[in-house]
Design a protein around this nucleic acid. Sequence first.
DNA 1: ATCCTGATTTTTTTT
DNA 2: AAATCAGGAT
Length: 726
Amino acid sequence: MSDLRSVEPAEALLEGLNGPQREAVTWGEGPLLVLAGAGSGKTRVLTHRIAHLIYTRRARPGEILAITFTNKAAGEMRERVERLLGHSTRSMWLSTFHSACARILRSEADRLGYTRAFTIYDQADSRRLAKRSAEAVGVDMTRYKPAAIQARISDAKNRLLDVDAYRREAQDPFDEMMADVYASYQRQIHAMNAMDFDDLLLRTVELLERYDDVRARYQASFRYVLVDEYQDTNRAQYRLLQLLVGDGSDGPRNITVVGDDAQSIYGFRGADVRNILDFERDFPEAHVVKLEQNYRSTETILAVANAVIANNRGAIAKELWSDLGTGEQVQLRELDDEHAEARMIVGEIRRLLDEGAAAADVSVLYRTNAMSRAIEDQLVRGDIAYQVIGGTKFYERAEIKDAIAYLTFLVNGADVVAFSRIINSPRRGIGQTSLARITAQAQTLGTDVWDVAADAASVPGLAAAATKALTRFMETMAELRELAREGLGVAELLQAVLERSGLIAALEDERTIEAEGRIENLEQLVAVAHEFDDEHGEEASLELFLQELALVADADTRRSDSGLVTLMTLHNAKGLEFPVVFIAGLEDGMFPHSRSIDEGALEEERRLFYVGVTRAMRTLYLTHARRRAVFGSPSVAMRSRFVDEVPAHLLDVPARRSSPTSWSSGAGDGAQASAAAYRLGEDVLHAAFGEGVVTALEPGGVIVVRFAGDGSERKLMADYAPLSRP
DNA sequence: ATCCTGATTTTTTTT
DNA sequence: AAATCAGGAT
């Protein structure tokens, strides 16, 4: 390659890109569809295209709106663009759909009857509200689950149906009832100056549809719109893009979308593959670029991916190829149960680490969050550091939600959900009954709960003790609100909230290990607030802090620079790559999941498997168990049909000796005494099986050894087996 | 109002 | 297996 200094800087942005990538980066005005197979360098294309647009002065940073799937991806993209350009991109809009919408809504809130301090409800908040709405309408809650009710509402919103449209579409009495629930839900959430995740999109669409001046302003401001992971956009996001890009009557529609129909895995939340399939119909003047060269995986891994995805119908023709060589065969392992599976995985990880692999190079993927536990247990035993992405998130912990609810109530006195959460936490002697009286009064008067609660004496029927407690509580809240008005930093304010609310004191009084952990979590939240203050300086406001917090995805908290093995669901693995990947739990019913074994959904499961396989760069393990505990009770499982779709010659399946099954698994702590000779993770040499590593110690002097030769795992009597140290 | 206990449910996947 | 919930006792 030529010396960078001797070429035109714009040329330098194309350095090292292949033909189609260059074409996508340099393409001029008008719609552009980039069909980017897994590992084909689409992030590179996006960042270089943005840098190129700015460098060639076709766009100023402020004229670019780039949508990514996670905040973390947005941050990384900003960093890369800045590195390419050598200057700041602060004025560029680079965020997720939801964050961009929240930002727009914050500045236009009054048009929709909101204030800029509106609360963003997460799933749990929204579910609680759905339940309340259903009860208010008189739905028999023993027959319907709140989650199902909420899913209905969310589904309607994702299809851009407002309450009236939903009612018009109603087919049966159940739908009619749901329409009432939906109406009640929307009435309440609006009255509380709150929005759920779906509202962020829906309300922005409403805003742009209803106000020509607002639409014109944003259309003019975002001259170039770029969207990553376009295959996972839903109806609302699609409509939003149309509104932002315009109809093309006053200039070219500069929209770039990047995606891969084979990786569409969010149908369950309303994503519609047709958005990408029909792009050329929606934008007839579109230019299309296909990226088919994969720079990530070995040919064997790609052959597996291609073979499996070929079983899906109606995909855009596309064949991934790579010149990285054949590489290793894909390792297929069948184990007795989920514990043996976990031992096998951790045993292999230990071996890889001993051979010099970095922990950060290894990832274990699974279908459902619940599957992480067995693997975590073994990692802990094996003393291997790891991180879990997803599952119970930091921001969903009770104490964190409490602290956030305090802050929320300070800025949004109409937020009944926040008020309900904090009014008796810590305990103040204000229970269900008193709470119901207060909220009912607020609803009757149509005023903020804050105002009702601040005048405790005015609440009808409130007991004397409750009135007193409420008065004290609201005095504290008023003090805190005053502190907020004085322009205290978010971190300092949070600290004041934790102290004056009695939240910390109550935890300290518990004097348990658990409570100590909770206090630590709260301290961590204060640290997050400090970071926010430092980052935003003068701009830092409590409103902004809360709205950013609500949109943090767990994927955003992933650490890449550390010596940690990463565990996560296949969904969370989207967009990532690892030299070594394990896909666990490949059993019919687990993956594909039993609830999606019908036509359309099965294809989505297959795409999810495709996503998993294509995360692997060098080494891929597929594992499944003959027995697996579901809801605590064991059940037999068949190997996943997806495994059967993999051509046999690509797989390495070690011949399996029948292993002794009479010994129960689940080593206790007492195991060390009899198997003291061997320690967890220790290398051993077996006369017949060769080198291996101890992956578990079990009672009765039994050790479990994973052999390097054939990858098999065997239970041995430590005292009798022909074992020695290498 | 709060605490305890037994019953029921949870696990699809997420912004 | 763990978490949440409803009902009843205090």
